[in-house]
Amino acid sequence: MSLFRPFFSDLFARLKTFVQTHEREVDFFCLGKKYLVFNLVSRNLKVKYRRSIFGVLWTLLAPVGTAIVYYFVFKVILAVRIAQYPLFIMTGVMFWTFFAQTVMESMESLVGNWGLISKVPIPLQIFPYTGALTNLVNLLISLPVLVGVAFASGVVPGWSFLLLPYYAFCLFLMAYGFGFIMAVAFVYFRDLRHLMGIIIQIWFYSTPIVYAEDMIPEKYRWILTLNPLGKTFQGLHGIVSGTVNVADLGWSLSWGVAILLAAMLLNRSLVKGVVERI
């Protein structure tokens, strides 16, 4: 028993040294610059909401408008057989808009902030991070709208709705990690802007957002497994219909953590030359 103590204290000391020497990679959540994060996020939110209720409504305009169009096309015209379609499509569109917007904004964030990056010491990950955080706050604030849509379509939201922030968090990890990778890639390849537009479109239709996952023919089910967002949206559909699938919860978080780890590894190796390349 007495051997365990020195082992653990030694391990702890090593961990501490590791954290100190690799501060840049470990601080992927910018914990060392909390006030700067707060400053940037609150400034972004002020611009988005402009301190008025109209500002809040305006930011909701895009997802609500898109959802209405999809409802008309897929439910009214194509008569897709999914119950509670308004709630179904609204959830999907809101969470997807969060992901797609975060990735596109983060991609341009490093090049767009060249003035700051090249003149003052600042951790590069703070730009995609604050972008993703701003959009996450936006998404969380919009969640009551989903509850409203549920009541309006005659659905009483069950306890499963409490899991919506959990999926928002998993999606946040994926959006941040992916946004960071794209931001670094964009520094080197400026035509990624066009390519990403196409990829996002394809990705949208490869994810069960306007359709349910059980409508995918068996031979194409592998797309759902390979798609990092697949299980997340599957879980969201479960919430909307009142069921909770623990496997979906687990998969979402795992994908989020995996993408984030990939981004952290990138931070460690390739990021050094980025400042000079911008």
């Binding site: 610059k33 909390k34 600042i122």
Partner: peptide, 12 residues
Amino acid sequence: IFLNAAILGFGR
């Protein structure tokens, strides 16, 4: 002023 101070690591 606040932005610059935040970048240098100083809180509010």
